[in-house]
């Protein structure tokens, strides 16, 4: 009954399943690694400080990504500044105040749906709402607002999830000590939810930094000879620059595009790393 050989079928199944799972991890990683290595090899010959600190040019060898890089950082900073406070506030409302009301439920379902809307639709919305209606023009501000709108559902849902994971026992403990709802949210709930909120924010910022379509619609330009100098300035961003280069007939521009991709990925990784460090710092305070 307990002989090993009778269980051999089960053991084969176990090994088979394990291998399938392992393959599911390795194959996407391999594909990704191939892509990155391929791009890195292509772009390596153009990657230099000069590439990063130069303006675009008609001559591929002199072209650089500086305005696009600064533009990307500018737009992302604005996006974060707009989306995070609004998103967290909305999540706090939904989770702490509007709990179980039908309005909150409808809002929540809609937010989940919004997260699935194609980004170009947000671009069109941004074009109509910010660029034209609000009169922001094809500016950094309009781009920031558009991207903020784009990532808001993700920020709200992730924050909501983080708030929900704060144990009810801690809220009760706080109320039991005679704290008001506001005191409880500010001093107990939000500090505990912070790592989760940061994780959600990292994901959404990563998504925003790679967005191309909505910014094309909003009006990012591919050929900038100056740096964006204010909220109303016109702008470029890295994905647009890369996209533009890939459409040029000269093959040298393709190398520029590859180098641009490496820069974009590096920025993304740096931002993520910073955010993860920040998150770990807060998480370490909890055991």
């Amino acid at each position: 009954m307990m002989n090993k050989d009778q269980r051999i079928g089960g053991r084969i199944a176990e090994w088979g399943f394990r291998i399938v799972c392992l393959a599911a991890v390795i194959i996407p990683l391999l594909v990704l690694a191939t892509l990155i290595v391929d791009v890195a090899i292509d772009g390596a010959q153009r990657l230099s400080w000069e590439f990063i600190s130069s303006y675009p040019s008609r001559i591929p060898e002199q072209a650089g990504v500086l305005p696009a890089l600064v533009g990307s950082l500018f737009v992302i900073a604005l996006t974060g500044l707009l989306a995070i406070p609004i998103g967290v506030a909305a999540a706090v409302y939904l989770n702490e105040y509007g709990k179980n009301s039908w309005v909150a439920n409808i809002i929540e379902i809609n937010i989940a749906n919004l997260a699935g809307v194609p980004s170009v639709v947000y671009g069109l919305l941004g074009l109509g709402l910010f660029v034209r209606f609000a009169g922001m023009g094809r500016s950094v501000l309009a781009a920031g607002c558009t991207l903020a709108l784009l990532i808001l559902p993700i920020v709200i849902m992730a924050s909501r999830e983080a708030l929900r994971s704060v144990p009810g026992s801690l809220r009760e403990a706080s109320y039991g000590l005679g704290a008001t709802k506001w005191e409880t949210i500010r001093q107990v709930v939000l500090p505990m939810a912070l790592p989760g909120i940061l994780t959600g924010t990292i994901l959404s910022i990563s998504r925003a930094i790679g967005e191309t379509a909505p910014l094309i619609v909003v009006g990012a330009v591919a050929y900038m000879t100056f740096l964006p100098d204010g909220l109303d300035s016109s702008f470029s961003v890295l994905p647009i620059q890369i996209y533009d280069w890939t459409t040029r007939p000269q093959p040298e521009f393709l190398i520029n595009a590859a180098a641009g991709i490496v820069v974009l990925l590096s920025v993304m990784l740096l931002l993520n790393a910073a955010a993860i460090l920040l998150r770990n710092k807060y998480q370490k305070r909890m055991y």
């Binding site: 026992s169 403990a173 039991g176 000590l177 005679g178 704290a179 409880t184 001093q187 807060y282």
Partner: peptide, 29 residues
Amino acid sequence: RHIGMVFQKPAPFPTWSIADNVLAGLKLT
């Protein structure tokens, strides 16, 4: 604040030190 409560599961505030937890009632309010 006049009728305090202790719960089933010990629930010290995880982000707070021991001393801060003791003072929690005062800090919160």
